[in-house]
């Protein structure tokens, strides 16, 4: 029994980091906004890393899931806010719709794109993302290119006070929950047969098949998990928090690139990596935006290049090597 618990020790530093972030944001005035931004990057990195870190497949179209999650929540609020008796159930419906849309698209993408490898997979995912965006705009579904504005509907259903609390606290708080959930699922997968199967897939997919591993099944599990968590982040941090959605704002590859940066900075395939990467990226982006607004990308690009060249395994990769053979080893994964 002790053995089983000690396998999950690497979750301790991750949860500790999230808890400290939460406490800082909650009790220090004026910090909540920044902490929420950090949690957003940590959650996205952690979710994206479940698929990329474990399988080695780089999903450039990951933002599709975040966008569909946003749309799910937006649809839920827009269409169900008229039923006032639903109360908070409106948001539950929104979240269910978000997860439904994301899993639909994840399974479809898994069916089409997971047959491809390497660059072809990445390109197919970008294609699906762009295709979906232009489909929504062109077919004029869900408001077409004008999107949906449902802040008014939200106000009507919950009243000013509650909406204020929902958008400024609970939306961000749920991002924390999703980040922690992502970390737990990632850890659980790493320690189960899924993790071993995906290690085999990452290293040599054909040999894995010969070893009796149903590669498609395990890849789909990781893809779906990663996508659903992303949809959760989208539903809360974009949908509920902002009260509007435009296809041009959400189907943007830029956000996938941010996921990649966060994960590579921290360490791909590690548990703590996305947290550290999310903190470094989020903090420096926030800080650079304050001291040199408009120049942050110009400064950030070379910093990223330097870190990736100097530490290809990310910060946690370095840390793991440092701690090898010490007592602390079992806390870092």
């Amino acid at each position: 029994m002790k053995n089983t618990i000690s396998k999950y020790y690497p979750l301790i530093p991750v949860f500790a980091a999230y808890l400290i972030m939460f406490i800082i944001g909650f009790f220090m005035p004026g910090m909540w906004q920044m902490v929420a931004l950090l949690a957003f990057y940590c959650a996205l990195g952690q979710s994206w890393n479940i698929f990329m870190g474990m399988t080695g497949y780089v999903d450039f179209g990951y933002v599709t899931f975040i966008a569909l999650g946003t749309y799910g929540m937006s649809l839920g609020i827009s269409y169900f806010s008229q039923f006032e008796w639903l109360g908070i159930g409106i948001l539950v419906i929104g979240l269910i719709l978000a997860l439904f849309l994301a899993s639909l698209s994840a399974l479809l993408e898994a069916f089409i794109a997971l047959r491809l490898r390497g660059a072809y997979f990445a390109i197919a995912c970008i294609g699906i993302n762009e295709g979906l965006r232009y489909f929504i705009e062109g077919a004029k579904i869900w408001g077409g290119s004008e999107g949906m504005i449902f802040f008014g509907a939200l106000m009507q259903a919950f009243g000013k006070e509650t909406v204020n609390q929902l958008t400024t606290f609970w939306a961000d708080f749920s991002v924390f929950i999703i980040a922690a959930l992502a970390a737990f699922l990632n850890m659980h997968y790493m320690r189960s047969k899924i993790g071993y199967a995906l290690t085999a897939v990452r290293e040599d997919e054909d040999a894995a098949k010969v070893m009796g591993i149903n590669t498609t099944k395990y890849k789909t599990i990781a893809f779906l998990t990663s996508g659903l968590l992303g949809a959760g982040v989208g539903a809360m941090a974009w949908g509920l928090k902002l009260g509007h959605v435009y296809p041009g704002d959400v189907f943007v590859i830029h956000y996938t690139v941010e996921c990649i940066v966060v994960v590579l900075l921290g360490g791909a395939g590690t548990l703590l990596g996305p947290v550290i990467g999310g903190l470094i990226y989020g903090l420096s982006k926030y800080w650079l935006a304050v001291i040199m607004p408009g120049f942050q990308l110009l400064i950030f690009a070379p910093i990223i290049i330097i870190i990736i060249v100097a530490a290809p395994e990310g910060v946690v990769g370095l840390l793991k090597r440092r701690l090898k053979g010490t007592q602390l080893e079992m806390f870092i994964e």
Binding site: Y196, T199, A200, R202, E203, D204, A207, A208
Partner: peptide
């Protein structure tokens, strides 16, 4: 014929 270990494991 040419061993195919899962290298990082």
């Amino acid at each position: 014929q040419i061993p195919r270990p899962f290298g990082s494991a």
